[in-house]
Structures are given as C-alpha cells and as structure tokens.
Design a protein around this nucleic acid. Structure first.
Lengths: 207, 207
DNA sequence: TTCATCCGACAAGAAGTCTTGTTGGAAACA
DNA sequence: TGTTTCCAACAAGACTTCTTGTCGGATGAA
C-alpha cells in the first residue's frame, strides 16, 4: 500500500483492459462452439463459463445476460460477413463471385452457419424438425405441380433446389409481411408471393 | 355405489371422451392465440390453462409437455393447409391459383401465419429481430448489386420482393445443407446457392 | 332435494437457471 | 521470497417453471 499503482498490474503481458477483452473473446468463441453444437436454448451460462475458463462473475461483467452474449456473437458474425462482402463488391467481383464468396464465408466454419441460420436459434430440436418438415412438404408439392405442368428445366437448373429456394423465399416474405404490414393489408402479401413465384417460375423454365 | 355405471356421467350433454376432446380443442385454441401474440417461449403452461379454462392437471392429461402441445398445434395447422392445397390441386387449379390459395390460407387468420412462420417459434423477440436485420441487410446488398449491374426488371417484377425472396431462399438452402450434408461437402452448397441465384436472376430480368 | 361424480383451482415439491457474494490460489512485482 | 492484485472456482439465495397431489364447488342424476 506504499507506492499506489495508478493502473492495474499486468498479467500475462496484458493490462486489465486487454484481459477483459480476452475473456470476451473466449466467451464468444465458446458461445460459437456450444450454441452451434447444442443450440442456444440448451446451453446454460455456467457451461459457457466452464468452456471458456471464465468465472460466472466474469461473465456478468462482460455481458448483461445470455441473450446479450448471443446477440454480440451474431453481431460479430454479421459484421465480419458484411465487411467481406462489401470488400468483394468494391473489388469489382461479378455476381457469381459474390454468391460464391458468400458461400465460402459460411463453409469455412460451419459453426458460423449453424449459429446464424441453423438450429442454433431454435427453441428445441423437435420444433426445428417440425418446421423443416413443413418446408420439405411444400417444396415437394411445388415439384409435383411443376411435374404436372410439364416444366422443362433450363440447362443448369436443378428443380429440387429451385423448389426449396422458392419455398424458403415465400416463407420469408410471409415473415416479413407479418412484422411490416398490418394484418388487414392482405393485398401486399398476395402480390409479393405471386410476384416472387413468377420470378422463380420464369427463371426455372427460361428458354 | 348400488347401480354401478359402466360409463361416466354426461355433463353438458357430453360424455367423458367428448369433454376431453373439447378440453384439447380449447387448449389448442389458446395456444394459437397466446403463442401468436407472445411467442412460444414466453407462454408458460399455467397461462395456457387459465386462458383455456382448463386445470393444469387437465393439461397434463392431454399433452405430455408444452412442446408436445406446440407440435400438435403445428401438426393441425399443416394438416389443414396441406389438405386445402391438395384439394385445390385436384380441382385443377393453375399455378397462380395455388399460390393465391396458399396466401389465403394464411391471411384468413394471421395467428396461424404467426405461429407457423413468425416470431412464434423464436427464442426471444430480440433474437428474432437480429435475424431479420441480417436478412434485410442481405436483401439490400443484392439490390445494390443489381442496381450497379443495371438490371432492368421485367414487367410486373418488384425488385425488392425478388431480392427478399432470393435471400430467404438462399438462407433456407443453407439450413437444408447444414442438416442434410456433411460439413465437408461444400460443393453441394456452392452449387445450390449459385443455381438458385441464377434462377432468380434469370426470372428478374426476363426478356 | 340429495348424492355421486367431475374437473378447475389451488398447493407444494422438484428441478433448473440466474445472479451475486466470497475465497483460495496463481501471477506478477519488489 | 514476500506482498499485492486479480480472477476462476465455489457457494448460496431468489426466482421461475414444471409436475403431481388434493380439494371444493359445480353439474347432473335419482
């Protein structure tokens, strides 16, 4: 208590702020790993801390809650992805390159894709399974209709992929409509769904 | 205890089995209402029972758990929708009619859409918001690329809708890839994403 | 009216998680 | 080596939800 330090002591060559940043990185890395493999809902804070070698106390000094931690992880992922895509665009990449760059960003670390698009966000595996079953049925229905209509796929077009994407897009348009439009505005949803269907339908059987 | 009844007594003109069926219907109706407005994660069993005028005991006699209840609700919704779509198809409806019938099935009761496609299944509103923010950014990015490429929309095509649907479809293809393919099989994802992009891109700028 | 039955309401225990407080030991200085 | 600082590990309380058991009012039958 003689020579009072104005700043905290250095440990492992890092000052207090750097150590805090490292704890944060460790927690986010553990969150990526555990949320991807077990899902967000099935990963308690304590397990997160054990995996990251951080005390529960330290967790609450870094994040307000488990949800905040997940949001920070998502923010980091999206920020990185967006920066990468913007860079490619600035380099003058063409459309096919951009799509491939997007795929590469996810393929590089499947945990990223799992957390951002997969069951990571789901309430439970069973519910996620039910959700996917819906989409599979819908895609199969579309394929059946196309078959009945005698659709001839344009060269390089995989009808199953097109149907899956079509369904995913339509479901997303519905989700958008739910939060952006009033329930009374049914016309905009009908137009959007019909319009997107025409786009895909046109692209599938392109001359 | 003299004349033992072989079957339970009738109440409100219904025997035991019918009353049980009615409780089930009331619980499912309450689940539809509450899951749609508050979300699944934010609706405890007790609240479900209060809204349905059913005791917690009765709940556990009907469903094994809250998740089972949600799965039953989803199953009912999908079954009804699938039956309706199959009927339309059998009637010889054309593709546009089918799309519109699908929209109509959801528009009729927005709670159905909310439960099946909206925030109903989400872990929390904040996470759902983050997820949607991702998609909005991606759709805006696509629009920017198309603008830069001087894409001229075909008549009747809304570029914003097409971009939103494209992103939704691509994200769904990723989700599919995550559960159906091994992480090492990166080629199939690349092909699927590129293929679906070509389909939409072709349909957008159709001559 | 009287009685048997049903079932929604209530109570209580169990289990899990969140959140904060404490501490023992490790790591860096002197 | 001795001292100080830091922090992961541990502990404990509060809270929420799940799940099962009991009870009393309501309902219909006799």
């Amino acid at each position: 208590m003689i020579g009072r330090m104005t700043e905290g002591r250095r440990i492992r060559g890092m000052d207090a702020e750097q150590r805090k940043a490292q704890r944060r990185r460790q927690l986010l890395e553990s969150a990526l790993e555990l949320f991807a493999t077990q899902g967000y809902a099935a990963t308690p804070i304590e397990q997160l801390c054990q995996h990251a070698f951080v005390g529960t106390k330290g967790f609450y000094e870094t994040f307000d809650s488990r949800e905040t931690c997940y949001l920070a992880l998502l923010a980091e992922i999206t920020e990185r992805t967006e920066a990468r895509m913007n860079a490619r665009l600035a380099e003058g990449a063409d459309e096919a390159d951009l799509v491939d760059a997007f795929a590469e960003a996810l393929v590089g670390d499947p945990r990223v894709a799992q957390v951002a698009f997969g069951h990571g966000m789901a309430v439970s595996p069973a519910l996620e399974h039910a959700r996917r079953e819906n989409r599979r049925w819908a895609a199969a229905f579309v394929l059946r209709v196309w078959e009945g209509a005698g659709v001839a796929a344009a060269p390089g077009v995989d009808l199953r992929v097109a149907a899956t994407g079509l369904i995913g897009g339509m479901f997303d348009l519905i989700a958008d409509w739910l939060v952006e439009s009033s329930p009374s505005d049914t016309g905009s949803l009908r137009e959007a769904l019909a319009g997107f269907y025409r786009v895909v339908r046109g692209g599938v059987a392109l001359p």
